[in-house]
């Protein structure tokens, strides 16, 4: 039980798909094939350039049937902790980076008779791989893709070219809205819904689906939280008997890694549960930012997802 396997890859294409989205094609440095994967999988990119450092999750958007290369899309997030900006600024054709072996937290439900995929903005990336797989397996799917405008939206023309009328686009600047209620109404039994996009959109879709009587098992979403910034605080590590400082723009996980300790992780976005850490003592307030712990667990103050959650107060001791 350890951190995921890492693979060294070289960037062979770096394309500005839109002003804010950079597409990277990655090929393995030492072997000629990457691990096969399934639609919905992600990898964690690890890259260091001097003092700047990034370790972020990105969905694999190439075809799962092409193991010669992976493709990811990096959205430059303004006011980010610098990770996506670092990739935009210094990762180019020829750059070597490290990625983890793929892991799928957003898999296709294969019992579905029909798959309805709902994407907002950069949330399109896992669906790029999923549609390739669903199409090849002959499944019944439709993609509904909402974007701000035609210029900043990525890949919608490619997708229309590949899947024609199965792709529906909605552009905010043309006052087109995704007709969610109508879409959810009257679907055949066994239809599954998948959503990936901004937090507000995911909430809206989940709420509307529940309201319309959809069972939770038929509604799937992927929601990676970016570790939010905050105030500096200290963490005492009970097992390794050390105290480390977590800076305003780093997560507990990152601060611990910088100190040479390698806790478990998979998503680094508060979704997978792997980094769950027992809180030995918390004299202050735990700021839970994950989507993994239940409300009761959060309230109990006994556990913390160190990839995204923070602390404010006098003293925090973790079982690490």
């Amino acid at each position: 039980m350890s951190a995921p396997a890492e693979i060294r890859v070289r960037v062979t294409e770096a394309e500005a798909v839109t002003p804010a989205i950079k597409r990277l094609k990655l090929v393995p440095v030492t072997s000629n094939a990457l691990p096969d994967f399934s639609g919905g999988a992600h990898t964690v990119v690890h890259y260091t350039d001097g003092p700047r450092h990034v370790r972020n999750p990105y969905s694999l958007m190439g075809s799962p049937f092409d193991s010669s290369a992976y493709q990811i899309s990096v959205l430059r997030v303004p006011d980010s902790r610098g990770g996506s900006a670092l990739i935009h600024d210094s990762v180019n054709e020829g750059t070597e980076i490290t990625i983890t072996s793929p892991i799928n937290l957003f898999p296709i439900d294969r019992r579905a008779r029909r798959h309805i995929l709902i994407a907002g903005g950069i949330g399109i990336t896992p669906f790029m791989a999923m549609t390739a797989q669903l199409d090849r397996e002959g499944a019944d799917f439709q993609l509904h893709y909402a974007m701000r405008c035609r210029d900043t939206g990525a890949y919608w023309k490619v997708l229309q070219g590949l899947y024609g009328h199965r792709v529906h686009t909605y552009f905010d600047d043309s006052n087109q809205t995704l007709p969610l209620t109508r879409l959810l109404d009257g679907q055949p039994l066994g239809t599954h819904l998948y959503v990936c996009g901004p937090a507000g959109m995911i909430d809206w879709v989940l709420k509307t689906a529940r309201h319309a009587g959809w069972p939770d098992e038929n509604v799937h979403y992927e929601r990676f939280a970016a570790p939010p910034p905050g105030n500096t605080f200290a963490v005492e590590l009970a097992k390794s008997k050390r105290t480390i400082e977590v800076g305003p723009r780093e997560s507990v996980l990152e601060a611990i890694e910088a100190a040479g300790i390698e806790p478990q992780f998979l998503c680094r976005g508060g979704a997978c549960g792997q980094c769950e850490t027992a809180v030995v003592c918390a004299d202050g307030t735990l700021q839970h930012n994950d989507h993994y712990l239940s409300d009761d667990e959060k309230a109990s103050g006994k556990k913390m997802m160190i990839c995204v959650s923070r602390f404010e107060g006098a003293r925090l001791v973790l079982d690490l």
């Binding site: 039980m1 995921p4 396997a5 691990p35 072996s101 793929p102 892991i103 998979l266 997978c272 549960g273």
Partner: peptide, 11 residues
């Protein structure tokens, strides 16, 4: 179960 759910390809 928690461990198995997080199993990775090639491991």
């Amino acid at each position: 179960l928690k461990f198995l759910l997080a199993m990775q390809i090639g491991r």
